[in-house]
Design a protein around this nucleic acid. Structure first.
Lengths: 114, 114
DNA sequence: GTAACCAGTTACCGAAATGTAAGTAGTTAC
DNA sequence: GTAACTACTTACATTTCGGTAACTGGTTAC
């Protein structure tokens, strides 16, 4: 260790693992970025716009809801529609999402330049 | 879409997926955070401090090296030791790493409070 | 009554990620 | 020569992830 105590290192270790545990996989951060940046979406819209199949999307939305990152609202339309929105808590992930978007855009540039 | 064109949404989509592709899995961001925040580490140190088994650590380090995020230096010690360091390019990921550390620490607090 | 739309769910499958345990290879100390 | 240290690699098993296809259930329009 150069400049941090063992305990601090351990905290950092846990912190990263905790975050990864909540937003793991290929899709959760993408779904959140769509909802956080564009507001409410219906199930079908999310599926089409993200390219996620219904089975996976359904599972991911359940998990995000369990972690209080999105809300699910059933609307009294005919046929029924369901609206998914990001919660205020999900806004706290915006920092992570935006950092990843910026890095990905920059990385793509770097790769193309070569 | 509320405030963004389809093309912009698509770019955001790609950007997130690109980032996830480079730092996928349970371990890469943890390894990078250790190297970025604490400087050079040897193979054994990394394995012990992160709790990653040699097999996985070796694979992850190879992939990080391929993406120019770390460098591998063999030292003329007896027995030979190998030093891993983060590159300048890895520093550009610090924004993502630090955002994840902050979010994870805050999230853990939230969970414990309940 | 049959086709269509919405929001899923179920069954099944293959690939990828991760883990454990043991082994390799070079060097040093006793 | 045997044990111990370094840095891995190999073989194997298991778990998790993600994908396709088909199906359910409720409603509406024709």
């Amino acid at each position: 260790m150069k400049d941090k105590s063992d305990a601090t290192c351990e905290k950092v270790h846990f912190a990263i693992q905790d975050t990864l545990y909540v937003v793991n996989g290929k899709w959760k951060l993408l779904i959140l970025s769509i909802l956080v940046n564009n507001g409410m979406k219906r199930f079908g819209e999310l599926s089409r716009e993200s390219g996620i199949s219904p089975r996976i999307l359904s599972k991911e939305l359940h998990e995000l809801e369990l972690n209080k990152l999105i809300t699910r609202t059933v609307c009294n339309t005919k046929p029924v529609t369901v609206e998914y929105s990001s919660t205020a808590y999900a806004e706290t992930l915006k920092e992570v999402i935006d950092a990843m978007i910026r890095w990905g855009q920059n990385h793509r540039k770097k790769i193309i330049e070569q």
